[in-house]
Design a protein around this nucleic acid. Structure first.
Lengths: 122, 122
DNA sequence: TTAACGTACAACCAAATGGTTGTAGAAATT
DNA sequence: AATTTCTACAACCATTTGGTTGTACGTTAA
């Protein structure tokens, strides 16, 4: 599956920063499994409702979750597309790494360095 | 390829936090492509040497890069294994999402809810 | 030997983060 | 109508973050 990556630095900053907190990662897991109200989420953690509310806001600003109004509740649900975009970013790092390995392999396979000094140790 | 994930919350925190900065992500890209000294990296960015040094330290604490001494230089190189571990973490989120979809599909495919709730989904 | 280079680290600072409590309003319940 | 529930948001606080400058020390070059 190909995922378009068109994210600004600031957006990527927000996504990674949002994931850099265990409570927020747990919230993401929960709401990917099924949408939940903010207070239902808050019951799960040993902190104030307002604190959980802030965590949800961080996730929302990062695009990792979205909220939907139902009566007086705000149902929080996960956004799997955002997850896929982060995966695509990390895939890029893997590709860079593999490209490097490929280049080193090519150097080893071709033992004919041009006249200027042969730098065969990296 | 299967990657073992055995990371504490604090470790995952450090990894995501380390990636939540554009300069640090750029450093990771560069050193995955080829190892570089700290001062060679510092030349690339519009900030002090000490600032880049701190960024490298953050990446090192997260296990995303490592340093090797060569004379007076410290060569920074990327750790592709750490990248794979983060990918494995995100794969888990995807799996949760897919499991949810599967459950919803199962509910729709079976329009006969028996009176005492059938616990066939764990 | 002296000078320049690469690094480490401390001290400092402004801004952001992650928590709290308190107040207020809209929706549901009694 | 009165009360409870769910949410929003402001104000505050301690700690962390991301930058700076300055000093010191080992290594390389002149």
């Amino acid at each position: 599956m190909v995922v378009e990556i068109d994210l600004s630095d600031a957006e990527v900053d927000r996504i990674f920063r949002a994931l850099a907190d265990a409570t927020r990662r747990d919230i993401v897991e929960r709401v990917l499994t099924g949408e939940q109200s903010v207070s239902a989420l808050a019951d799960r953690y040993d902190m104030s409702f307002a604190a959980v509310q802030k965590h949800v806001a961080v996730l929302e600003r990062a695009g990792l979750v979205s909220k939907q109004n139902r009566g007086r509740e705000r149902l929080v649900r996960g956004n799997p597309d955002a997850i896929r975009r982060v995966q695509a970013l990390l895939d890029r790092y893997e590709q860079l790494w593999r490209a490097r390995i490929d280049r080193l392999d090519a150097l080893l396979a071709q033992p004919e360095p041009p006249s200027p000094p042969a730098p065969e140790q990296e």
